[in-house]
Nucleic acid binder design. Sequence first.
DNA 1: GCAAATTCTCGAAATATTTCGAAACAAGCG
DNA 2: CGCTTGTTTCGAAATATTTCGAGAATTTGC
Lengths: 348, 348
Amino acid sequence: MVTAASGTKATLATIAREAGVSAPTVSKVVNGRDDVAPKTRARVLAALEQVGYQSPVQRRSVADLTPVVEVVVDVLDSGYTIEVLAGILAFAASADVEILVSVTDPSGRPSPERRAQRIADAGRAGMIVVTSAFSEAQLHAFRRRHIPVVVIDPLNPPSADVVSVGTTNWAGGKAATEHLLDLGHRRIAYIGGIEAAECNQARLHGYMAALMARGLPVEPRYIVSGGKFRRESGVAGFQQLLELEQRPTAIFAGSDSIALGVLSEAVRQGVSIPRDISLIGFDGTRQGEESVPPLSSVAQPLEEMGRAALRSVLRQARGEVLDSHRVELATQVVVRGSTAPPAGEQPA
Amino acid sequence: MVTAASGTKATLATIAREAGVSAPTVSKVVNGRDDVAPKTRARVLAALEQVGYQSPVQRRSVADLTPVVEVVVDVLDSGYTIEVLAGILAFAASADVEILVSVTDPSGRPSPERRAQRIADAGRAGMIVVTSAFSEAQLHAFRRRHIPVVVIDPLNPPSADVVSVGTTNWAGGKAATEHLLDLGHRRIAYIGGIEAAECNQARLHGYMAALMARGLPVEPRYIVSGGKFRRESGVAGFQQLLELEQRPTAIFAGSDSIALGVLSEAVRQGVSIPRDISLIGFDGTRQGEESVPPLSSVAQPLEEMGRAALRSVLRQARGEVLDSHRVELATQVVVRGSTAPPAGEQPA
DNA sequence: GCAAATTCTCGAAATATTTCGAAACAAGCG
DNA sequence: CGCTTGTTTCGAAATATTTCGAGAATTTGC
């Protein structure tokens, strides 16, 4: 992209001559006005690309203004999102960046296309997408405008050229299941979140891998999925599991929110946790820590993820080359009060 | 400020002639460049004032760009803050406003003065301060620049000319206490948050008013305070109350976070809630709703408060006159599972 | 199918901003 | 006090953006 401007600096007029249009038209393209025909726009864009032009306002804005990074979240009521956000904000304060939070309107009111357009036009230094599905096309639109994007725990499998931050979901799922196996459990259920989500798949497969490694069968009736990563999924999933002839003795929930749903439904049904059924969540949120009994969980370094994401965005904005397009932080099984050996058995 | 431009529209050149400088100089003043001598700047500013000039970028930015409102929070880990923020974001999405969140750095790194300066310069449409203490001087700085500010649940008592949104803390404190009294409790404790905070004082006085109205004495040993509105305060406060010779039979906690701290410490100490001790919180957060047992609480319409604050900011930004500088939304006692008649007694 | 109305494109002219260098002023030094 | 050097302030010229109107393209109305 670095074009050695041979002698003369690139000005609007240069581009205009190159593209065979007037200077105002080039200005309009650069500033994203919409009164330019697509064909003309393309021609100007090509010329722009060739010469590597930067408008003075652009030059200034990267230098002076404190950069603004837009964070897009889907819902704000999960402990997960909040802790990631807290990590981002903490790092932002020390890095002298401002954070603009927006919620993906489920109704998709400002159409995704327009959204992308606006974020780009508003001169954001970058964007962090938290657990939301963003189409490949949209992400591409940002890349074309050189706006760095980092996706945290992408729902869609991270394509090679999107930077993403996540955790070792597969390893975490395996570790959680192994923890339950080590306690002596053999009938272990998995209650998942959004079925197609990359992280859900990884956790589920980690769970299956752990079972298979011990020569245990994977029982489809013990795998519940189809909801979201939310309380209600836990409530519903637990009810479903209770109806089985042979109940599981332990449950691995795909998120802490789901686990908390299981927990409250268990209390309602008179099932004691961990005496009757052991329960382990995923995320390691503060909410899980504070429940009664405190929730065993696969802790993700949520705040660290937020920090890592923002750090990566800022690096990209500064034009540094990243070592890797995918950062995976380690998960860790945290044993608290919701897991115990199955009734009447000793740990293996 | 409305000056009838006689015939000719105001352009930079007009101002320049008026002030006896060149057009570029006027441009620099308008755009806040710093290579203009203070004296010259003043002269230009005066001419600008006279004619009432608005630069085209200004004209555009007020019309086109979606306004940005800055939300300043102190911590992001309380359910309170999050729900207020959710309310703000929900309303923002429908009102086509963007929300910039910043956390008040406890170290106060970018000095408050500079912060105010920057927020003003960055062209924010307004600002919402959540439960943070902002000095009168700072708020005044914003008012001078015509940037609307709304404070949610101010720590300092709201001065007459600052717009604030809050709830009926006194009435809520009274209602919570009355609920416990109605159940038959007579020894009722109060665990407060930040002692000097306006809302804490109001809740405490509501509590005292309810006791006094029934002819009951206010026992200082039943009033614990000095912490923050956080879990730890509940843990510590509960421990302190347990050491009393005559334990209270009911506790009114100054916030849900505090109540959750009490709850977990009670479990640890083997005290059953509500059988041994009744507990009621304040805020009505989702976290309280989801605890075991679910927490009785004085519900504040948190999301509604966020919405109300943003609505008020936008109204002010539009130049509308507000009916009132203080909005108080009603609280409501929500009885869930953590309150019951005292052991061995019947409700009155 | 054609004229009228509307919308879309684009560039000339008007306006605004940036760059850059030249005065004006200030400070250090022999 | 002259001279150099550095800094500030300002405007001419260069560059960029906006406005606005005229033609082209498209839709609408009949």
